[in-house]
């Protein structure tokens, strides 16, 4: 049987690049695509905030306090979504808030991902005492409600947007550490790592060049979900007055004293929360889609 007749299988579909293949799976998930589109929109809005926003986010129009949205009686088309109690345009504040929220998201995810990957790789690669210390610390952090820990950290560092971001980055570390450690351990015993080790690769090279690229899929998913967590936690801290300080237009802090307007001005309460919900939902939808597209278990 030196020569084999061509089987029909060889005339199958053309070989796809990994990216094409990934997009093929991802684009089948309607929710994920909607999420992605929404995120791109928010991104554009954030980048061109100062162009798009009709007003300055902090300018107070004293003649237009608590105006309802434009389509209601008493509304003014200059203030599309109405104004808050000191006469600031809600739409403009929301648009500028997008900038801040996305920036915080990037900051938090970069910090926690970077540090988490290093700690997780170290724990998974060296095992032994190093691992025990790191994983115990992670367990301790997981025993704290993340918001409470973040609040405590902010309370100590002092309320500011940067401190809040630090606090959120710290409390979201454990997930990245656990994930990286688990994938590292799983990869560590595979043949390609052993052969690389035998070839004399240094520990650092093994950790970052050989192993890490093979752990990226779950990390990408976690980072996407980390984004939505960062936005939610930031908003919660802002709401409690521990995040962005007035007059910074941050979504959560826009709701900080909304409780008193529940009875009088529903628009002050409704819009910022809706934007938070939609943005977080978009990231979660995309995260779900990414997980399905990147999870080799679900692929045929």
């Amino acid at each position: 049987m030196s020569e084999q007749t061509t089987s029909p299988a060889t005339t199958g579909p053309q070989v796809q690049t990994p990216l094409q293949e990934f997009w093929g799976y991802f684009s089948q998930n309607t929710g994920a695509v909607i999420g992605l589109v929404f995120i791109i929109c928010i991104l554009i809005v954030a980048i061109f905030a100062s162009v798009i926003a009709p007003h300055s986010p902090i300018e107070q129009y004293r003649d237009a306090l608590l105006l309802p949205p434009a389509w209601l009686d008493g509304g003014n088309s200059a203030y599309l979504l109405g104004t808050d109690d000191v006469g600031r345009d809600i739409l403009s504040r929301l648009i500028h808030g997008a900038q801040l929220s996305l920036f915080i998201g990037v900051l938090v995810v970069t910090l926690s991902l970077g540090l988490g990957v290093i700690l997780g790789l170290t724990a998974g690669f060296f095992r032994g005492a190093v691992e025990t210390v790191i994983m115990r610390a992670v367990d301790i952090m997981l025993a704290m409600p993340s918001l409470l820990l973040a609040i405590a950290i902010v309370a100590i560092l002092g309320p500011s947007i940067f401190n809040a971001a630090m606090a959120i980055a710290i409390v979201s570390l454990p997930h990245y550490v656990r994930l990286t450690r688990a994938s590292t351990i799983a990869e560590l015993n595979k043949d390609y790592v052993i052969s690389s080790r035998v070839a004399g690769a240094s520990s650092l090279r093994l950790m970052f060049i050989t192993i890490l690229p093979n752990c990226t899929a779950p990390l990408i998913v976690q980072a996407t979900l980390g984004f939505s967590n960062a936005i939610l936690d930031m908003a919660a801290l802002g709401f409690l007055g521990l995040g962005a300080q007035p007059p910074t237009p941050e979504w959560g802090s826009m709701l900080a004293d909304a409780l008193q307007f529940v009875q009088r001005a529903w628009w002050v309460v409704t819009f910022p929360g809706l934007v938070i919900l939609l943005t977080v939902l978009a990231f979660n939808l995309m995260g779900d889609g990414l997980r399905d597209a990147l999870d080799p278990k679900l692929k045929q």
């Binding site: 049987m1 084999q4 007749t5 089987s7 029909p8 299988a9 199958g12």
Partner: peptide, 22 residues
Amino acid sequence: DALPGVVPGAFDRPIGCLLNPR
């Protein structure tokens, strides 16, 4: 002795006798 090829799946069913390619 071995029979070359594999059992056809959902997408590569041959026309005619199902065994004919092998």
